[in-house]
Each structure stands twice: as structure tokens, then as C-alpha cells.
């Protein structure tokens, strides 16, 4: 009898399955902020793509930027919402893959340097000039593989302070994602942090930021960032012209609710060459071998 119960439980449990075993079209995204927000955002995207493309579409959540790139490399996902740097790495690893669309804002993205009030850096606007007073403070990046949270801020730190971050600062950390960076600097665990400006503005609008405690002290010059990249072999698997269809479907997104989830005002065309500056910067600071 007990055995029967167990077997019954077993059969019902068979309805659960490992998400990645499911067939169909799969996509992922770099986990650049709170996972609950990502789930909400990409759940909507999956439903939209499914409706427009006519194939089952699944969003595969991952725990790190590297895991997103690896899933793309191993063909466990065919499409991904990458950052500038992760996209460059992914397309380097998968021949024939290409960037197809970016947010309108991603053409001129920027990083905010934010500081805790105890650092004494708030309220002394340096304008466009890099705030050299951050030297010797504690500093947190976002993820190790982030464009806006690592690559670009590290580039400007090296450029203006003339030193590698671990020499220029008292302590250097990697928070893991932008939401966490804001939380860490707001609590004062780090004096200064580098954060994706879109995540900052979203958190500000959601009332999660107390600007008496933490505020922006500088912004980087513009650079290209997030983009949708697709594997080159999707046409073989899903039919000729599939990649182009994905591109037009993404560019056609005009549902304000969907755009607001990113948040981007619209999606525009992108290609691999748009990200050459990112690649060059990564080579300059030694994150990619030339």
C-alpha cells in the first residue's frame, strides 16, 4: 500500500520536469538585477514571442553572466538579452551569431558612480570631471562580467586615477548585480559604487532610494550596451529566415507594458559592429585577450 502511495506520488511528480529539457525555442538574459523583476519582465517577453513566432518559447533563468554566455555557446538557448561585454564574448564563442536589436537607449548607455553620504562626496558636483576624490575609498562594481557595472567604470577609473582598481581603492568588491550595488552603497557597506543608470532610475521611481543617503556623483560618457543576440544556426533548426523574423518581432514591440519592463522606449536595429568599441575597451583593460 505504501509502495502504491509512493508510486502515485512519483507519477504526479513526473509532470514536473527540468525546465531546460523542454523542447522549443529558448532564451535567457544576464541576471543584472533582482531576479523577481527579471522573471516578470521575461515572462512577458516569452508570451509575446510565443504568440508572434508561433513556436513554444521558454525563458531560462541563470545565476551569472558567464552562465548566460555558456548557455548560448552550448545551444541551450538560441537567443539572449546580453550586456555589451557578455554579448561580445558570446558572439566570439559562437560563429555566425549576431546582434539583432538593442534598446533605443542602449545606443548611448551610461554608468552612474554613486556614493554614500558618509563618504563626503555627495553635493560636491564635479560636473563632467571625474571625481578624483573617490581614490582611497571603498568601491563596489556590479557583476565581474558586467559592461555598465564593471567594464566601463573600471576603464574610467584606470584612465583618471592611473591605477588598477585594487590599488586605487581601499577595498574593491563585486556585488553581483546592480540592485545589490545600490543596496550596498545605500547601507554604507561601500562608499562608492558603479551602477547601470537604467536600474538606478527604475529603483528611484520605485521609491527604493533615499537620496539623502546615496546619490549620483558622476556619469560616464555614452557607450553601446544591451542587445538581443541570436545564434547563427536558428534558421536551420526553426526554418529559413527565422533569425530575421525574431529581429522584426523584437523591433515591432510597441506594447508600453512590455517596453516598461526593460525599461526601454523602443527597440532598434543593431549589428555586431556596433559593439566594436566595447570589445576594444575590454582588450585595453585586459578582460579579453586581443
Amino acid at each position: 500500500m505504501r509502495l502504491l502511495t509512493v508510486l502515485a506520488a512519483l507519477l504526479t511528480s513526473l509532470t514536473f520536469s527540468f525546465s531546460t529539457v523542454a523542447e522549443g525555442f529558448r532564451f535567457t538574459a544576464i541576471p543584472d538585477q533582482d531576479e523577481s523583476q527579471l522573471q516578470a519582465r521575461f515572462g512577458k517577453v516569452a508570451r509575446y514571442l510565443e504568440r508572434e513566432l508561433g513556436v513554444p518559447v521558454t525563458y531560462v533563468p541563470v545565476k551569472s553572466y558567464a552562465a548566460a554566455v555558456t548557455a548560448f555557446r552550448n545551444n541551450q538557448v538560441q537567443l539572449a538579452w546580453f550586456g555589451g561585454l557578455s554579448g561580445v564574448k558570446a558572439r566570439d564563442l559562437v560563429s555566425g551569431s549576431r546582434a539583432i536589436a538593442q534598446g533605443y537607449e542602449d545606443q548611448f548607455f551610461k554608468t552612474y558612480l554613486i556614493a554614500h553620504h558618509s563618504s563626503g562626496l555627495l553635493g560636491q558636483s564635479t560636473g563632467d570631471k571625474f571625481p578624483k576624490a573617490i581614490q582611497g575609498k571603498t568601491f563596489t562594481f556590479g557583476s565581474k562580467g558586467s559592461t555598465s557595472g564593471r567594464l566601463m567604470p573600471e576603464f574610467y577609473v584606470r584612465k583618471h586615477l592611473g591605477q588598477a582598481p585594487d590599488k586605487a581603492f581601499d577595498r574593491v568588491g563585486f556585488s553581483g548585480d546592480h540592485s545589490r550595488t545600490i543596496a550596498l552603497v545605500q547601507s554604507g557597506a561601500y562608499a562608492v559604487g558603479a551602477v547601470n543608470y537604467k536600474v538606478w532610475e527604475r529603483a528611484l521611481a520605485d521609491g527604493k532610494i533615499d537620496r539623502n543617503k546615496v546619490d549620483v556623483i558622476w556619469q560616464t560618457p555614452a557607450y553601446p550596451d544591451y542587445q538581443w543576440s541570436v545564434r547563427g544556426d536558428v534558421d536551420q533548426r526553426f526554418g529559413a529566415g527565422f533569425a530575421d523574423r525574431i529581429q522584426s518581432v523584437l523591433l515591432a514591440i510597441d506594447d508600453p507594458e512590455l517596453l516598461e519592463a526593460f525599461p526601454r522606449q523602443s527597440f532598434v536595429k543593431a549589428d555586431n559592429d556596433d559593439y566594436r568599441p566595447i570589445r576594444d575597451t575590454a582588450v585595453t583593460i585586459g578582460l579579453i585577450d586581443g
Binding site: V6, L7, L10, S13, L14, R73
Partner: peptide
């Protein structure tokens, strides 16, 4: 006594299959 049942359930629930090319 329940170990074989558990093990069987485990294999059915998460079949240890790989869907990645061995070239990789």
C-alpha cells in the same frame, strides 16, 4: 527497502541526459 523506489523516481524525474554536442 525504499531506496530502489527513490532512485527510480529520481531517474524518472530528472533523466540524466545531455543535450549538448560532444564536440563542445
Amino acid at each position: 527497502a525504499l531506496l530502489p523506489v527513490y532512485l527510480l523516481a529520481a531517474f524518472l524525474l530528472l533523466p540524466p541526459v545531455v543535450e549538448v554536442s560532444w564536440d563542445g
